[in-house]
Write a protein that binds this DNA or RNA. Structure first.
Lengths: 218, 218
DNA sequence: TAGATTGTTAATCGATTAACAATC
DNA sequence: TAGATTGTTAATCGATTAACAATC
């Protein structure tokens, strides 16, 4: 069962390479070296080589990698040729924004329905996606064999929604609520922690202010 | 200059503790142990202790930590009592969603103006925040001594926007576009990589499917 | 050929986890 | 007191970086 052998940081970097390579492709360039990629992306070149090797793509010594080959390898490795269907819960500001991201489809996920507990939203459509009452989530998810759930509700409702998702047979949850979900171990959970960025901002800006106040030391 | 000594992963976990402790506080509980926190958040207890120690908060052996004390320490450490003003560029779906997040203010950031190149959006308000033409960004930023910029435009415009931000004197950039910004080293950049989550989903779901197809091994 | 580039193996670094002494 | 909990020092683990052989 060595399939888990690819480190998660590598997995996280692959989309970065992918988007970069798409831009390179857009300029008409057909060959690229790991060295060049590393420089442009601010990543160590050995790192880039290892990451690309993980996708099974091979380059030619002295030449480099074919941009097209790399794109195909990454797509295949991430299974981005197929997509899984997703249900989104919470058609508020953030939820609506995600419903508008048609590009997710190129990245393995298609949001096929939204759910909300607000009767004013139910029955309508957001970016073309129908909004159903939360009460219908479980049976619709089971019926359609949905794999992925997206949580864009306030923190105090997230745990409960997540549990409904598990009952609906979902296998992966993309959680935008700032709360740690307590779920069976086999459920894949990805938390988008917006506040983590803010913590880094506050701290680093403050450090800089202090450094400035202390004056240049040399 | 030991201020940089706090590891970034610690910084990223602190908001998690903070939101958790707020919920605990909401139940009326006044004392909590690192052990309990660790269990609820799925983090090793030693890790929690080290992270809390970094904020300067102290607990009492056999007793635990006062919830209130921890909240105050984390707030102070992250400088969340003050806030910095931010300009957001790109009042589309995601940008609008962020403009509606009034909670960011508790986390050290207040979005005071939005900018967009679409004349239809300029002059209007989104969640109460005025939308200005992009051409005014630089002088308004300089005038108001803005520290933080938020980029919620498509990838192909992000680099250019970021450069304008630097010219406007901003010190930190929160980038939601899937592109690596090439900026002077002193600029603090935080990338929110939504596609990273999708990479993990695709890969892990695929692994699971394969494991299932192979059948239970024991 | 010479040299740029690939790809792998070894060394380093830093975060996480384990072990343990201190304390109320 | 005994035992739970804190907080620190040491060990482990895994990712990143460095070194180097292979190749067109």
């Amino acid at each position: 069962m060595a399939a888990t052998s690819v480190p998660e940081p590598t997995l996280r970097r692959l989309p970065k390479y992918y988007h970069y390579l798409r831009r390179v492709q857009g300029t008409g360039q057909e060959i690229i070296s790991a060295t060049q990629m590393a420089e442009d992306l601010g990543i160590h070149h050995t790192q880039v080589r290892k990451d690309l090797a993980a996708t099974g793509s091979q380059g030619k010594p002295k030449v480099g990698h074919r941009v097209e080959d790399l794109l195909v390898s990454i797509e295949a490795f991430l299974n981005w040729n197929n997509f899984s269907e997703a249900f989104l819960v919470g058609a508020g500001n953030l939820g609506s924004a995600l419903l508008g991201y048609t590009d997710f489809e190129k990245a393995g996920i298609r949001i096929v329905a939204a759910f909300d507990s607000n009767p004013l939203k139910v029955g309508g459509r957001v970016h073309g996606v129908e909004v159903f009452p939360m009460a219908q989530f479980e049976h619709r998810a089971l019926e359609r064999h949905i794999a992925i759930g997206i949580i864009t509700v306030p923190a105090d409702r997230a745990q409960q929604i997540a549990e409904t998702m598990v009952r609906g047979g979902l296998q992966a949850i993309w959680n935008f609520a700032p709360i740690t979900l307590d779920l069976p171990e086999e459920i894949i959970v990805e938390n988008v922690e917006l506040y983590a960025s803010l913590a880094i901002f506050s701290r680093k800006l403050e450090e800089r202010r202090k450094a400035k106040a202390a004056g240049p030391q040399f």
